[in-house]
Computed example of a mutant assay.
Amino acid sequence: MRGAGRGSEAVTAVAALAALAGCAAGCTVQPAGADGGNRPPVRIELPSRTPSAPGAPDADGEGPSGAGDGAGTAPVRRPARVLWSPGDSGRDVRELQARLRQVAWLFDGPTGTYDEPTEEAVRGFQGRRGLPRTGRTDTVTWQRLLRMTREPGRWELYLMGGQPADAPDPRCMTGRVLCISKSSRTLRWMVGGRTLSTLPVRFGSEYTPTREGVFRVYWKSRHHVSTLYDSPMPYAMFFSGGQAVHFSVDFAARGYAGSSHGCVNVRDEAAIARLYAQVRAGDKVVVHW
């Protein structure tokens, strides 16, 4: 009968839908024919779901890129990678110190050595910004500092000296010479073309420039005091008029924030004391760029 056929088809459809709803993944539905016989089985494939990895690190390895797999798993944040820590040294540490000076967290240096004042400055910087106060410079701390500061200039990196010396001027390669470079702000003590010691130095300002050329040490004065400026000039070795190589308390305290009145200032008193004992009157002095 026609009515019975349509009723049988409806029952079959309902049964198929019920079977489909009961499938959690792929399953096989065995529909019944209108005549009560069996049709070939039909395989129904449901899309599979691949859970995302919780706490997957982002591109720089600093933390998760997503919120987990949606099952309530909290993201796992990896500790930031440490770049520099106490005891490290080098040019990168100088830049760290120079940038900390720019934001007034460090007042000494840069020295190029990750010392106790640097550790305290980093710890203070971290604490003010809600970062873990480790005192070690990790990638998160460094990126925050980079956004707040500018690229330090060459002399900012060597505010208190320590910069590498230029190659010796050819005029320094013979004899006993105080070879003084304005470009690298260093003094080489050389004998027979060999460098025996190197010291950071500073020069006069644009109004009182240090003269350039080849000179001779014509007078040494251990406890000299300037008659023109009434200022001490210990270990003075005069080479051109009133200009001399000598120890400077101001240079030792302020670094390159100041300048001389034309003399070549040395900030390391122990080093210039040794140099003073070696240099003789008549030794050559070369001041060059």
Rank of each mutant, 00 (worst) to 15 (best):
Met1Ala: 15
Arg2Lys: 11
Ala4Asn: 09
Gly7Ser: 14
Ser8His: 04
Ser8Trp: 03
Ala10Leu: 14
Ala15Leu: 06
Ala16Gly: 11
Ala19Asn: 12
Ala21Asp: 14
Ala24Asn: 10
Ala25Pro: 00
Ala25Asn: 12
Cys27Glu: 11
Cys27Pro: 05
Cys27Val: 10
Thr28Trp: 08
Val29His: 03
Gly33Ser: 14
Gly36Ser: 03
Arg39His: 11
Arg43Tyr: 12
Ile44Ser: 07
Ser48Lys: 13
Arg49Leu: 15
Pro51Ala: 12
Ser52Glu: 14
Gly55Cys: 10
Gly55His: 06
Asp60Phe: 09
Glu62Gly: 06
Glu62Trp: 04
Ser65Trp: 08
Ala67Gly: 11
Asp69Leu: 09
Asp69Thr: 04
Ala71Ser: 12
Ala71Met: 10
Thr73Val: 14
Pro75Phe: 04
Arg77Asp: 00
Ser85Gln: 15
Pro86Tyr: 01
Gly87Arg: 08
Arg91Gly: 12
Glu95Pro: 01
Glu95Thr: 13
Glu95Phe: 02
Gln97Phe: 11
Arg99Asp: 06
Arg101Ile: 00
Arg101Asp: 01
Arg101Leu: 03
Gln102Thr: 02
Val103Asp: 08
Asp108Phe: 01
Asp108Gly: 10
Thr113His: 12
Glu116Leu: 14
Pro117Gln: 07
Thr118Gln: 08
Thr118Gly: 07
Glu119Asp: 06
Val122Gly: 02
Val122Trp: 02
Val122Ile: 05
Phe125Gly: 05
Gln126Lys: 05
Gly127Gln: 13
Gly127Glu: 13
Arg128Gln: 14
Leu131Pro: 04
Pro132Ser: 03
Asp138Phe: 10
Asp138Asn: 14
Leu146Arg: 14
Met148Cys: 00
Thr149Trp: 11
Pro152Tyr: 04
Arg154Val: 11
Glu156Met: 01
Leu157Arg: 09
Met160Lys: 02
Gly162Pro: 02
Gln163Cys: 06
Asp166Leu: 03
Ala167Pro: 06
Asp169Ser: 15
Asp169His: 15
Asp169Ala: 14
Pro170Lys: 14
Arg176Met: 09
Arg185Ala: 12
Arg185Val: 00
Arg188Lys: 13
Gly193Trp: 09
Arg194Asp: 15
Ser197Trp: 06
Pro200Asp: 01
Phe203Gly: 02
Tyr207Pro: 00
Tyr207Thr: 09
Thr208Val: 12
Thr210Ser: 14
Gly213Glu: 11
Gly213Ile: 10
Phe215Lys: 10
Tyr218His: 13
Trp219Lys: 15
His223Glu: 13
His223Lys: 07
His224Thr: 02
Ser226Ala: 06
Thr227Pro: 05
Leu228Ala: 12
Leu228Gln: 11
Asp230Phe: 11
Tyr235Arg: 14
Tyr235Gln: 09
Tyr235Ser: 09
Ala236His: 04
Met237Gly: 08
Gly241Thr: 00
Gly241Pro: 00
Ala244Trp: 04
Ala244Pro: 03
Ala244Asn: 06
His246Pro: 06
Val249Trp: 01
Tyr256Trp: 09
His261Asn: 12
His261Met: 05
Cys263Gly: 05
Val264Glu: 00
Glu269Cys: 03
Ile272Lys: 05
Leu275Cys: 05
Tyr276Lys: 07
Gln278His: 04
Gln278Glu: 13
Val279Pro: 04
Gly282Ile: 04
Asp283Lys: 02
Val286Tyr: 07
Val286Glu: 10
Val287Pro: 01
His288Tyr: 15
